[in-house]
Every structure is written in C-alpha cells, then in structure tokens.
Design a protein around this nucleic acid. Structure first.
Lengths: 349, 349
DNA sequence: CTGAAAGCGCTAACAG
DNA sequence: CTGTTAGCGCTTTCAG
C-alpha cells in the first residue's frame, strides 16, 4: 500500500497565509486571541487549499479524537441482525448519533462488546487504547455493568448510560419506562379493561423492572389486582408466546396484555391465534419499542414508541459538551409516547 | 477535558522487555527479522502490560489507519431510518462489515454522503483527510458517481463499488441482479404465469436495469410478451402502488408482478387490495431485498434475498488484503437466493 | 537480526 | 495577539 501522506497540512496553510502554525491551529479550533483580519486571512487559505485537519494528528497531540463510541451487546445485536427480525435499535442509534455528532464535527462508531465475557475489561481497554474515543455511550445491559462503568470512570472517559438510573459515574439517560408502562396500562384501563396481563423482559435489564412497576402502579391506582398477571420473558418471540400461553390458561385470563417489547408481542399474537382468540376483540395488545414490525402485524399493534434516536442524540450532545456544560447529576428522562393502532379496543365481554 | 495520554505505550513495552522500540514495533506488525525468542519476550511484555497500539499514532507515522469507510446515500438512508420502514440494509452492512473487519483488527465506520450535492468532492475529501481510511465501500448510487470514484482513484485509496459493473477503478461487486430477476421470473413462469408484470427501480441505479433485463430475458426465452408490462418506480411505497395500479388497469392485466424492492411490493399488495384482488390467488407477487417486512405482510412475500452482509464482508476482505492479493479485474458476483413464501401460486384462471 | 535517529501533523506551554 | 519549542506514539529510514 502506498504510503499516504496528508495532502495539505497545517504547514501548507501557515505558509500560504504567511503565519505560524499556531495561528492556523487557533483558527481551526476557534480559539480566542486571533485578530479578525488574521482569522479571515487564515480561513481563506484553508478554504482555498481545502485543508482539513487530520484527526489522527489532533488526537496525537493530546487533543480530542472527535470520536464517540456507541457500545452494544455483541451477542444480542448479531442475533438480531442475523434473524432479520426488523429491530431497528441500531439504526435509530445511528440516526440520532450520526446526525448530532456531525453537527459538532464528531463521528460515531458502533462497537459490539460481549457483556458476559470474562474479558470485558480487556476487550474494552483494547478498544479504548486503540480508538481513544472522546465519549462512550453504553446501552443495556452494559449500562449497569460495573466492570465497564468502573473502567471508563477510572480512565476518565466521559460516558453515558442509557436505560440506567443506578447511582454511579456517567450521565444517565432513560426513556422513563415506568411512566410509559403506566401510560399504556392506564390507556387499557380507560378502555374498560380490568384484567391487564404483563409480559416482562429479563431481569438483567433494569427497565424490565421499571415497566413492571409502571404497570403495577397503574393497576393498583385503579384498584385492580395484578396477582398472577405477570409473566417473564427474554425479549424473544418464543418467550412471549410461552408467557402469553400461561396468561391465557388462567382461570380468568386477561382481556389485554402488555408485552415488554415487540418481538414478545408477536408471540402474544401467536398465542391468541392458537387459542382462536381474536385480537383485539378478545384480547387487546400493547407492545414496547414500536419497531417497524408493529405496523405489519395483523392487526397493527398499539405500541410505546421508545425515542431511541432522541435519547442517543441527547447523550452525544452532553458527552461532547462535557467540558463546558455542568454535568447533569440526575438522570435525564426522554419521554416515550404511545402510538395507537388497531390492537386496542374496549373488552367485549 | 483532561488531556488523556496513552496509558501504556510502545516505550513501556520496550523498557519492560529490554529491547528497542523498533523491535516492539516489529513484533506488533508481525514483521520478519525478529528471533523467535525475542518475539516471545516482547509478546510477553505486551500481554502483561495489556499494551494496544494507538491507531492515531500508527496512522501518523505513515502506516495504516485500520479503518474502512462504508458510504451510503445520505438522503435515502436518513429517510429510511426516519420512516422506520424496516429496511435493514445498513444493519446487514454492519453485520458483514464489522465482523469481517474485526477479524483483521480493522473497524468499520458508516458515513452518509449526499450524491446529489454539488460539493460531493469537497465533502468526501474532507472526510478522507480527517479519517484517512484504508479502504472505502461505495454503495449505489455512489458506486457509479464519477466524481466520487475519480476522487478515490486519484487519492489512491482502495475502494469497492457495490452494485456496479461499469468499467473503471475500484473493486466491483454485484449480487448478480440480472440472474436473480431471471430466476424470479422463471419461477413464476414455472407456476404457469404468462403475464408477469415488472415494477422497476429508478434509472440512476444500474441494478434497476439489470433486473429489468433478467425479467425480459426470462420472458422472451419462454416466448412471452413483455410489452406494456413494465413500470418504473422510485423504490418507495407510493411508486409501487402507482405502478401496480397502472399494470392492473391494463386490458389484460398481469397475473403476477415482480417488484424491484420490498417497499414497492407493499404498494403492489395495496393496489391489489384496492381492486379487491386476492394475493396470491388473483395476483402473485415477488419482491426484491427480503427485508424483515416481507415476513409480516399478508400474505408473506416470496422474495429475492440480497446477500448484503456477504457482499460487504467480501468487499472488506478484498480491501484489507489489497496489497497482498492480486486485485480482481472482473466484477465479483455474490449470488442471491429466492426465498419462497406465500405470495406465489399458479394463476387461478 | 537489532538499534538509533528522524519525522508524521498537530497542539500545549511558554515566550515575546 | 502571535510565534517558537517540544513532544504525543509510532514507523520508516538507515546503521550497525
């Protein structure tokens, strides 16, 4: 491979503008202490020569790397990509991340890390040493992996924890899962449902518990029982199917079910079909996430839309401005909304 | 922001192993001329200290950046992400790209570039100057944008052109669209269809034409007419709907339609529904891409699966080994497969 | 086979 | 406000 060198460097610009390297550097970085005339002259040379600073060189000299790392769970992400289940979590991350990054001259890079690996620390250390990101975004279940958060804190790398309110280092952002679960439950209660089942996610996701709590709170506030109406799944279709089968086998089965994600909701639909129950007249369904698939199910699913793009965008912003802005001490909530479709109607009997 | 320095550098390793920087460098890069004993001693220090070379420093000193850039059309990609249409093109790129990159110690980064922009060259130049990727993957319609391919060639950056056979610089990879369109058409003919309509993609995608050619070839070979059975769309739902409406308004409408992508196929389903035609008994449908949505339509769509992950994976491999391997002069074909679902049956009348 | 020296492009620290 | 100097961590010469 040809030894590629930077086509036009800060030296060329300095020479062209007849100033020192330092002055050019100051202009690039928008630092104070440059006369306007000088600044314009330099900017002119920059534009004319088409100069763009080398990120590698900037990083080398102790400045920023202009890189934000978004870390996802390796196993789960690859499984989703393989299965082509239509989960667009990564896409929404990129949507929020890339656009916001580019506003600040940053880039976003997606990394897959295996939480359950004994070598998480080594794996992550290596990535950080190699890439030297200016900020890291942690998604569940990494957000609460002490090995990871501890390492990042120790290395003094700003990071955001999506979907975690657990105290500790890092900026915490949530989509207020308790609130949205409550909202979904209240909506069903409002329609007249009194037995609302809940299919929860796995325990290693904090948000699983929050959603349960929101559902319970709404039920209790309406004076409705929850006992026996809670089942656990693992976010996959099969587990949603099994959980719903259990719920529908109850002496007095629920007339509505909330599933903690779309894939499990598909399982819920399937379970209803197996029992010859009509959705929504026999069973109303609300799912979480609002991934593309919910619009193509029969019937289209009412779903809690998780504002993933907005959340990542916010995280990027905070991470980039971490030096300037005062760091939020409290978790930041990006509110989810409920998208009504055809899977929710009043109970028919 | 704290001025972060590399925790453990090549110097530490050199000192620890009692050798020169150079020797460590040779070990890292697996260069010859290091005695096995020496190599082991150095590797030991590397492992013990947990040393990982800084990519920025490597890049600075004229070596590789270990970065492959995957460039997608900005407008189209963002529109798809926003609409949450379930297109998983980017996910499949990442699946193939990230995994293969990581095998070689590389990373993949997704960039969005606006083809229709007058400043493509400047935009791309800036990205390249900033990132200095070792390779670039171009997807349609960038693959045939002379401004882009010319720039990359001039800068001597290895690149792959996905979905292009047009002569010129760069490694060309296709999914053999003509072949798969022929295959789809033959399948329908095999079922007994004689009037097979085709909804093509936009002209600025070469593959649109290839798919048309495949369809035509199969029809002609079977002695079937194609006149009037071709309509053009722009890959979006609405255009698929309109194109199908035109086809169904024909004096003798087609009994089967091939749509050049899944979104347009959804439009085809909708057009059939509007006319009270049953799919598949009144109208068989095959779509291209096999994105997640095709499994959730009613009925699930028979579709040509585009091996995006495999193609990107292959591109990455070639790009990384561009110095060692002889560069393929001919386009490389990664073969698509036809996934049969419920939207294709023999014509009912 | 190994080492020493020079430099990649940029910024921090210090002078003026 | 501007310039000079030193060095980031690594690889490429070029010597031994």
């Amino acid at each position: 491979m040809a030894r590629r060198r930077q086509a036009v460097t800060i030296k060329h610009v300095a020479k062209d503008a007849g100033v020192s390297l330092q002055t050019v550097s100051r202009v690039i970085n928008n630092e104070p202490n440059v006369r306007l005339a000088m600044k314009e002259r330099v900017q002119n040379s920059i534009d004319r020569l088409g100069y763009v600073p080398s990120i590698a060189a900037q990083r080398m000299s102790g400045s920023r790397s202009y890189l934000i790392l978004a870390i996802n769970d390796r196993e789960k992400t690859i499984a989703e990509w393989h299965s082509r289940s239509g989960t667009d979590w990564v896409d929404q991350m990129l949507l929020g991340g890339i656009l916001t990054c580019s506003q600040y001259g940053y880039r976003m890079m997606v990394e897959l890390v295996d939480t359950h690996n004994d070598h998480v620390e080594r794996e992550l250390s290596a990535t950080i040493a190699a890439l030297q990101p200016d900020g890291v975004i942690l998604t569940p279940p990494h957000s609460e992996n002490r090995l990871i958060t501890g390492l990042l804190a120790k290395k003094n790398i700003p990071f955001a924890r999506i979907g975690s309110v657990e105290p500790g280092p890092g900026i915490r952002l949530t989509m207020d899962d308790e609130r949205s679960a409550r909202m979904a439950t209240e909506m069903l209660i409002g329609l007249g449902h009194r037995r609302v089942g809940f299919v929860a996610g796995p325990d290693d996701y904090s948000l699983s518990t929050w959603r349960i709590n929101g559902w319970k709170a709404a039920m209790e506030q309406a004076g409705l029982p929850t006992s026996g109406l809670l089942q656990h799944g693992d976010f996959r279709f099969d587990s949603g199917l099994a959980a719903t089968q259990s719920l529908l086998a109850l002496a007095s089965p629920p007339t509505a079910i909330i599933a903690s994600n779309d894939q499990m909701a598909l399982g819920t639909i399937e379970a209803a079909r197996e029992k010859n129950l009509d959705v929504p007249s026999d069973l109303s369904i609300i799912s979480f996430d609002n991934t593309p698939v919910v619009r193509f199910t029969d019937p289209p699913l009412t779903a809690v839309d998780q504002p993933v793009a907005a959340t990542i965008s916010k995280a990027v912003e905070l991470l980039i401005n971490v030096a300037k802005l005062p760091l939020p001490r409290e978790p930041i909530n990006i509110e989810a909304t409920l998208v009504e479709r055809a899977s929710t109607v009043p109970p028919q009997n």
